[in-house]
């Protein structure tokens, strides 16, 4: 169970004219309770949906209000929350830390498996489960983009988190890999919150949140929520945030 209670996020921004830095609002106030197994978050680039996703594991802390995951406040119990919540980013290059796949998965396991050789064995098991057994010792930069994203997922799921949050996991992938990653996410037992531009994928969720201008403007079953989003993106009201990046 993920709960947002009157959450607001603000940040410093520089003044293009060279004056003092100032505070801007990125998100909120938002109140939500997410219990569904599959939650999709859609929104224009720069709408605040990445910030929303990052609140769930405490990567972004609320400037006001609080976020609670399974009874744990992300501001007070950040470490415990991150053990429960796995996070997959758009760009696997930013996420993969170690030079080879087996070492990267082993890094995720370092806290749960203290013995180094057992850790390697477990990491190889995990890679085999994700169809990467033959890539285990290949340098990461020699993997394809899709293989890298699969590796990023494998490294996060190796610790068996209760919740998985994905921030546009398929944006950089071709259609074949996108399908493969979507199928993998659909097959998981975990609660999955996925930020996506892929409306087909969003349509398969149990619940869809539409984020615009730092607020949740629609929330509900995929049908009506996505219809609202389509109207928003094609109508005049979408213009102010259309230029921004996530």
């Amino acid at each position: 169970m993920i709960t947002f209670e009157d959450v607001e996020v603000t940040a410093w921004t520089s003044d293009p004219a060279g004056g003092a830095d100032r505070v801007v609002r990125l998100l909120g106030p938002v109140s939500l309770a997410l219990a569904e197994r599959r939650v999709a978050v859609v929104g224009a680039n720069g709408s605040g949906k990445s910030t929303l996703a990052r609140l769930v594991n405490g990567l972004v802390l609320p400037s006001a209000g609080r976020v609670v995951v399974d009874g744990l406040d992300t501001a007070d119990d950040g470490a415990a929350v991150r053990r429960r919540v796995g996070f997959v980013f758009t760009d696997p290059d930013a996420q993969i830390v170690m030079p080879t796949p087996v070492e990267d998965v082993a890094l995720s396991l370092r806290r749960t498996v203290p013995d180094a050789s057992e850790r390697t064995a477990r990491a190889l098991d995990v890679l085999a489960r994700f169809g990467l057994a033959d890539r285990a010792h290949v340098p990461v930069h020699a993997l394809s983009g899709g293989q890298r994203q699969l590796l990023a997922l494998a490294a996060v799921l190796a610790t068996e988190p209760a919740v998985l949050v994905c921030d546009e996991p398929t944006t950089l992938l071709d259609l074949r890999w996108r399908t493969r990653v979507d199928d993998l996410l659909a097959s998981l037992d975990q609660q999955v919150v996925v930020v996506t531009h892929d409306l087909e994928a969003a349509a398969r969720a149990d619940r869809v949140l539409v984020v615009d201008g730092g607020a949740v403007v629609a929330d509900g079953p995929p049908g009506p929520a996505l219809a609202h989003y389509r109207a928003l993106m094609t109508g005049a009201s979408a213009a102010p945030s259309g230029e921004r990046r996530p």
């Binding site: 990052r54 594991n57 990567l59 470490a79 991150r82 980013f89 996420q95 830390v97 995720s108 806290r111």
Partner: peptide, 10 residues
């Protein structure tokens, strides 16, 4: 992004 990923991985 890497820093975020490191934090996310605990």
């Amino acid at each position: 992004s890497t820093g975020d990923a490191l934090a996310a991985r605990g």
